[in-house]
Design a protein around this nucleic acid. Structure first.
Lengths: 145, 145
DNA sequence: TATAAATAGGACAATTTTATCTTAATTAAA
DNA sequence: TTTAATTAAGATAAAATTGTCCTATTTATA
């Protein structure tokens, strides 16, 4: 569904959000350990999330990654997915046609429309806040072990 | 959503089905022209669909690819996707956790469950017959130009 | 101001996916 | 039985994604 980079990005953002609620900045080492991802690759993805204004970075000693507490409820899953994978997953054609619409649909257009809209709605209404809360409450996990 | 290979495979299967209804076998050249895909790569994907019993191949002169007319209504989109991409798209975890279930869910587990189930239902109930019909009726297209 | 602790960024490597090319095997028909 | 048309299959190449490493830059604090 999503690229590996996007999976790591989502998990990282959730972990950062959880820590930001506790007033704690985190670094790529902690993050990659907590989400079970390759550290350097994860650091690249974090850079990208910073450039897309999903998370903040603070350079230098005592720095790290964080998200402003107040903005966490307003950050949507769609923003993270968009920052890393773009919007083709919930906007593009299921069969990869460059133009696929009501006037010129691919054979699965109608079938996919519903799925794609559901996915888009879900991504656009799911906030980082609820995901971080799932984690904090111990109702969800970012890795298997 | 799907790999390129899977997109090509679905389109190829639809085109083959349409032609099989007309009693016509088709070869990779025609197919790749009709679905706008690289020919040799498409041929590989066709081989895979043959091995997975989604389509039939007839070797030698006057051969080509076909699908038994009577079986077209019973071939599900899920079989094609499964043959090429496997089932992870509608069975795997949205964040890539190896084990993700009610007891040990990822933070987006519940959100994804619905999407995934919708997708699975759609793939398992959509038949090659209806897709080929969309094409035959001129209500859908396999390429842009 | 020097130092240590961070992120940023560029170059590179490995792996996977996508794509191509060539040859072998098969088969209908002349 | 030979030939031409066709799929099968293996080797290879190109491109994209995933992953690593090294150095530069930034910054709080001693």
């Amino acid at each position: 569904m999503f690229s590996k980079a996007c999976e790591y990005g989502i998990k990282a953002a959730i972990f950062i959000a959880k820590n930001s609620y506790e007033g704690k900045r985190v670094n790529p080492k902690e993050i990659s350990e907590e989400i079970n991802s390759p550290q350097a690759f994860t650091a690249k993805i974090l850079q990208s999330l910073v450039r897309h204004n999903v998370i903040n970075s603070v350079k230098g000693a005592y720095g790290g990654f964080e998200i402003e507490k107040d903005s966490i409820p307003y950050i949507k899953l769609s923003q993270i997915v968009n920052a890393i994978d773009g919007d083709s997953i919930y906007k593009g054609c299921g069969l990869g046609l460059e133009t696929c619409n009501e006037e010129h649909p691919c054979p699965v257009h109608d079938k996919f429309k519903e799925i794609r809209n559901n996915l888009r709605d879900m991504l656009e209404t799911t906030t980082l806040e609820e995901l971080a809360l799932n984690l904090k409450n111990g109702n969800a996990f970012l890795k298997v072990i």
